[in-house]
């Protein structure tokens, strides 16, 4: 808690208190920060990430690195519709060379091998802040497929050692709109999974 308090010298409130895998809350005071800290630790354990709150628009990139520093594919997206959990329920592909340049730089420097998602905030002054890297393909990866970059297929090819040419383009202005619907399932299927552990 002392470390959390000491951050007040560096950051102003609000601060973002984040779990190591999931969950984030915006704290407007030290009291709130303490509450969120304890709540998230109880659920996800330590460490907790504390970041300065950056006001702006959330933009994301889905990308694939070959492990040698090359970017096999990358598609930037802006969330068009955000759920109360901060998840994208709709998004659109962007023509944004700066986001792509940043992605190439990160993959080049880290020699990233596999899928990744960059979460960025673009401020009113058009500055980009990297707030998170998820070391896996995101749930909206099918937007990249729809825009002309089948990154899951390329990932499988890389894993099996096939040569993969980097994607050089994607369609700008393609949208994804998410939908949930009720599937009708058989009780036998549910029983099979619960009792035999397979379906």
């Amino acid at each position: 808690m002392k470390e959390l308090k000491d951050l007040e010298d560096e950051y102003d409130y609000p601060m973002v208190i984040k779990g190591k895998f999931y969950d984030a809350s915006i704290a407007n005071s030290f009291e709130q920060a303490q509450i969120y800290f304890n709540k998230i630790v109880a659920k996800w354990g330590l460490p907790i990430v504390v970041q300065e709150f950056i006001r702006g628009t959330e933009v994301n990139v889905v990308a694939l690195g070959d492990g040698l520093g090359n970017t096999i594919g990358a598609v930037p997206m802006k969330k068009q519709y955000i759920t109360d959990k901060g998840k994208a329920w709709g998004g659109i592909t962007l023509d944004d060379p700066r986001m792509l340049e940043l992605t190439h730089h990160i993959i080049g420097q880290t020699q990233w091998r596999g899928g990744m998602e960059l979460e960025l905030i673009r401020t009113d002054k058009n500055e980009l802040y990297l707030i998170e890297i998820n070391p896996r393909l995101p749930a909206w990866v099918y937007l990249a497929v729809g825009a002309g970059q089948n990154l899951p297929e390329a990932l499988v090819k890389l894993a099996l050692g096939y040569p993969v040419e980097p994607f050089t383009s994607y369609t700008v202005g393609i949208l994804f709109i998410r939908y949930s619907y009720d599937m009708i399932c058989f009780l036998e299927d549910f029983q099979s999974l619960t009792t035999r552990g397979e379906l």
């Binding site: 759920t83 959990k85 990154l151 899951p152």
Partner: peptide
């Protein structure tokens, strides 16, 4: 797939659309 959907099915959809693999 609850409030925050997992990437599994979107990944599968991409692989199923492969022109190279029959998965």
């Amino acid at each position: 797939n609850v409030d925050s959907p997992g990437p599994g099915i979107p990944v599968v959809r991409g692989i199923r659309e492969s022109t190279f693999f029959e998965p």
